[in-house]
Design a protein around this nucleic acid. Structure first.
Length: 437
RNA sequence: GCGGUCAUAGCUCAGUUGGUUAGAGCACAAGAUUGUGAAUCUUGGGGUCGCGGGUUCGAGUCCCGUUGGCCGCCCCA
């Protein structure tokens, strides 16, 4: 007999798990709307070339890709950025600015599973197109922070590390590095936190060991944790480009400070986000305890829309993954044990009671109240237990006594109080009681 | 792709140097109990012990392989 199991790394959501997932998505969606972002969606299956164009041919090894029946090379989307760039690029001329979009979608990567990482996962993606200045990053970082705070997470729980690939290049240029050397050095910076001195291996292989002064300056730059310190460190370099860039930093941090978010943001040049397509500010959110992988990440990618065939259009965005985020919420006890409780549970006496109850049950449901009842006849004791277990706020009792009097008994299951209302008034009584919560 | 580790009921686990028909708690269902929720008692369903092969008179137990989970490396868009 064949037995089936889900594919490795894929997840199944039983109702309680889906309730938690929906809880997270609901709050993300509300928050993004509050920040004026509009929701979009797009195909799960895309041309393989879309990702090769963005990330190079090697990316294919990390994708769920195959040839479809029409001979097309396709891939399940591993990320949203190329897709949203295409969407925006196609209509860029007619879209009202600023273009602030978000999506909550599922992604697929052919990778080995690890803590907080599977082969399928969901992300909130938020992006702003057409805004070249730090005003875009202001909105994005603020939204990112609020998407975590909305669950009760505080500055004790997480922070956003803010870095800048432009500033790195300007700085390394001022230190005398040409572009290839600067790129190799940034690669080392990216790995330094994890590997320490071994991070420079790649640079050494290509260009020989960096001189001690240069290395000291680079490592010193990594220690910078404040805007003041950043300005101090860069003062000797003092190019025009650096001065302009520092003005952007001042504006971004000033904006976030004015929003009251200073405690959530930390200057930290150790974040460079791989060597992918980012062109300016980059940022990542981490748990303060440093136990989990990055919760969220993003940055500016001004060249990508054009690279993918659209017009030149500055852009910045970020994504929050659902797996690490859920781990963080659970760790901090902030993931509620959500149960889909009905509003009303009907306790029914006999066949006559059942007929009477059905009329009200249907009317309640049509009015939008979640209403449950036992499908088969049950002893009263069991029905009350079922009513309590269901989490319903109210029990409606349709027994012989009530029928004889032409009333329904309404029991408040939490308060354990009861009252009788005429049959005709049941809907109004339920509405009043539940509205009064 | 590489390495470590684990796999017994829906869940958490026990199972003796290899020995008869594989167990417990919780959960679920039925009843005691057709008028009031947390308790008690009784009963029940559920397992090819992940899968396949080997050693043995005999394998949940030992050996090999395989699949899957977890952890780490690579990668992390």
């Amino acid at each position: 007999m064949p037995s089936f199991q889900s594919l490795p790394g894929f997840r199944e959501f039983y109702p309680d798990a889906l309730a938690r997932r929906n809880h997270v998505f609901r709050i993300w969606r509300q928050t993004a709307h509050a920040f004026g972002f509009q929701e979009y969606d797009a195909p799960v299956l895309e041309p393989l070339d879309l990702y090769k164009a963005k990330s190079g041919d090697e990316i294919e090894a990390q994708l769920f890709s195959f040839v479809d029946k029409g001979g097309r090379e396709v891939a399940l989307r591993p990320e949203m950025t190329p897709t949203v760039c295409r969407l925006v690029g196609e209509k860029a001329a007619t879209l009202k600015r600023p273009i602030k979009w978000f999506s909550i979608a599922e992604f697929f990567r052919y990778e080995r599973m690890q803590k907080g990482r599977g082969r399928c996962f969901h992300q909130l993606n938020a992006d702003i197109f057409g805004e070249p200045g730090p005003e875009a990053e202001t909105e994005l970082v603020a939204l990112l922070i609020q998407c975590l705070r909305a669950f009760g997470l505080t500055e004790q729980d997480f922070y956003v590390r803010l870095s800048d690939r432009n500033l790195w290049f300007y700085y390394l240029e001022a230190l005398g590095l040409d572009e290839p050397r600067a790129r190799a050095m940034l690669g080392a910076v990216d790995k330094f936190e994890k590997l320490g001195d071994d991070a420079f291996k790649g640079y050494v292989e290509q260009f020989g060991p960096p001189d001690a002064a240069l290395k000291a300056r680079v490592l010193g730059f990594l220690e910078v944790r404040s805007l003041a310190r950043l300005e101090e460190t860069l003062a000797p370099a003092g190019s025009e480009k650096i001065a302009a860039r520092l003005a952007d930093w001042k504006k971004l941090l000033g904006n976030l400070g004015a929003m009251g978010l200073a405690d959530f943001v930390q200057v930290d040049l150790g974040v460079v986000r791989g060597l992918a397509y980012y062109t300016g500010f980059v940022f990542e959110a981490f748990d303060r305890k440093g136990e989990l992988r990055a919760i969220a990440g993003g940055g500016r990618y001004d060249d990508l829309v054009e690279k993918l065939g659209g017009p030149a259009l500055p852009a910045a965005g970020f994504a929050i993954g659902d797996m690490t985020f859920a781990l963080l919420l659970e760790q901090r006890g902030l993931m509620p044990a959500l149960v889909s409780a009905p509003d009303v549970y009907c306790v029914i006496g006999g066949e006559a009671g059942r007929r009477a109850a059905f009329a009200d049950i249907h009317a309640l449901r049509a009015a939008g109240f979640a209403t449950e009842y036992p499908l088969k006849e049950l002893a009263f004791g069991k029905q009350f237990k079922a009513a309590a277990d269901s989490g319903a706020r109210l029990a409606l009792i349709y027994g012989d006594d009530e029928l004889a009097k032409g009333v329904v008994k309404i029991r408040d299951l939490a308060a354990r109080t009861e009252r009788e209302v005429p049959r005709a008034d049941v809907l109004a009584a339920v509405r009043d009681t539940l509205a009064g919560e």
